[in-house]
């Protein structure tokens, strides 16, 4: 255990603040967290700021503006360890849907004066811009995983994060597979565990917010889901969601889309 408390900074980029709220929502652990680390910069929690450099930077959000490219470089220069927090930071998030369309078109639809906007054509994960030391997925992140990573850093060991898919978590909590039991499309078999399989436990399919699992059999996933589609294009939509810009999910959709076109 280090003698001096590590200084931690929490930053927000393009995001909904949900991951920062997951930290503030720790309730039982929050006081212990404040004991274990020095929260030096966390605007969502307090405007009191301590100057850097920081030991740990927790970064929420994706990079969507030219200014954010500059800011994320400053974050990197100012921190020993950078952790991307949540699926915006690890895969671009839901705003990365623009990567598959025209950002101009979207801007025109939403804003009366899109000419005042300064934005990039794409929403991209933090690791596309700077070196990231660790990625924590989820929309939002699982607070237990945030604590595990901080405890691991405090003790100078690797964090214990599950390498398997959501299916194992469903079975451990006794949730019958929604694909088999209810015919509900679910991308849990291709999705990294860590959430505790909360969606299938509520009787709905996993929509992949924890991002792709390791060693995904993309062909087999696509085949299974295409067979059970409740409307044309459902499989592609499932993969092109919050983690849609993650390379594995992009690959699956690229495989499916030509088939969908042919079917039309």
């Amino acid at each position: 255990m280090t003698t001096k408390k590590p200084a931690v900074a929490v930053y927000k980029f393009s995001s909904c603040d949900g991951c920062q709220l997951s930290i503030l929502n720790m309730e039982d652990e929050l006081l212990n967290l404040a004991e274990a680390i020095d929260i030096a910069f966390f605007l969502e929690a307090t405007r009191a700021q301590k100057p850097g450099p920081y030991d740990i930077a927790l970064v929420e959000g994706s990079i969507t503006t030219p200014h954010e490219i500059e800011r994320i470089r400053e974050v990197r220069a100012n921190a020993k360890v950078v952790i991307a927090l949540g699926t915006c930071a690890t895969a671009g998030g839901i705003q990365a849907l623009r990567n598959f369309a025209s950002a101009e078109e979207y801007a025109k639809v939403v804003y009366a004066h899109p000419e005042y906007l300064h934005y990039l054509q794409t929403a991209t994960p933090i690791a596309e811009h700077i070196q990231v030391d660790m990625e924590l997925w989820g929309c939002p992140v699982n607070k237990a995983q945030v604590i595990e990573v901080i405890v691991a850093l405090l003790n100078n060991r690797r964090p214990n994060l599950p390498p398997h898919s959501v299916c194992l978590e469903c079975k451990r909590r006794g949730t019958p597979c929604v694909i088999v039991d209810k015919g509900i499309p679910c991308i849990g078999p291709a999705t990294q565990a860590g959430c505790g399989a909360i969606c299938p436990a509520m009787g709905r399919g996993c929509y992949g917010c924890f991002g792709p699992a390791r060693d995904v059999n993309t062909d087999a996933m696509a085949n299974m889901l295409l067979k059970m589609e409740r409307y044309p294009g459902e499989t592609a939509r499932l993969f092109r969601g919050i983690s849609g810009y993650a390379p594995t999910f992009r690959t699956i959709v690229d495989e499916i889309l030509p088939a969908n076109e042919e079917a039309k």
């Binding site: 398997h164 898919s165 299916c167 194992l168 079975k171 597979c177 849990g188 078999p189 291709a190 060693d215 059999n217 062909d219 087999a220 996933m221 085949n223 299974m224």
Partner: peptide
Amino acid sequence: GKRCLSCAS
């Protein structure tokens, strides 16, 4: 192996 999802179910 081509058909298996390796999901562990």
